[in-house]
Design a protein around this nucleic acid. Structure first.
Length: 204
DNA sequence: GTCATGATACAG
DNA sequence: TGTATCATGACC
């Protein structure tokens, strides 16, 4: 496994969203690590993207981290209840990000089960296992991602993305993004990417 | 399928 | 002060 470098993130969110599929999101919770394979993403292109928080260069306390250098975490609260994990991309000053929509749990599922359901892994049914990773709010719960992770440098040691030494082979499906009907023509852009056939993709 | 949840942002 | 949102679970 090798950690992705700053250069990987220093591209448009469209490129990063597609390329980061199949890679591993690693997060340290207390002294343990939980790992999920990224199987679904959405690209948010910033100033010209009506669906993006940073549309029209809207710069607030919340969106500030998107204006910073690439390779940092953008974690925000949605609907007052859940967190969403994004990765800042593109050079400093360009507020783009990639939303991580779903992951396939890979390591430390015991810990994920506790964080998400407060139950032991052995007590989970099939649906609950899927529910560990098949949505942006769900994966944040399972992986212990919260507001304190906002702004974290993903080139550090506690929170990062890594790739296998051997590339895995899969087909990428391109689709419209989810729940952005308010974004008019931007709602039609095919900026959602997922691994074909993967069980943890949030919506077919 | 409907609905409540409630932080953040913004319009008035 | 009201209205909408990059979601989810609990209901019908």
């Amino acid at each position: 496994m090798k950690k992705l470098t700053r250069e990987f993130y220093n591209r448009t969110s469209l490129e990063v969203a597609r390329d980061i599929l199949g890679k591993y999101l690693v997060h340290a919770v207390e002294d343990e690590k939980v790992i999920g394979r990224i199987v679904e993403t959405e690209a948010y292109m910033g100033p010209m993207d009506k669906a993006a928080h940073s549309y029209n260069n809207r710069r607030t306390k919340r969106t500030e981290v998107m204006f910073g250098p690439p390779g940092h975490a953008y974690v925000y609260v949605i609907y007052g209840m859940y967190y969403c994990m994004n990765i800042v991309t593109a050079e400093e000053g360009k507020p783009q990000a990639v939303l991580i929509r779903s992951v396939e749990p890979v390591s430390n599922l015991e810990r994920m089960a506790k964080l998400r359901y407060k139950k032991n892994l052995s007590d989970l049914g099939e649906k609950e296992i899927i529910g560990l990773g098949n949505g942006p709010g769900k994966l944040c719960l399972s992986m212990g991602i919260t507001a304190v992770d906002n702004g974290t440098d993903l080139c550090g040691d506690s929170f990062y993305v890594a790739e296998d030494d051997v590339k895995s082979v899969f087909q990428v499906v391109t689709a419209k993004r989810i729940n952005i009907d308010y974004a008019e023509e931007a709602a039609l852009y095919p900026w959602r990417f997922y691994i074909k056939g993967n069980r943890f993709v949030s919506k077919k």
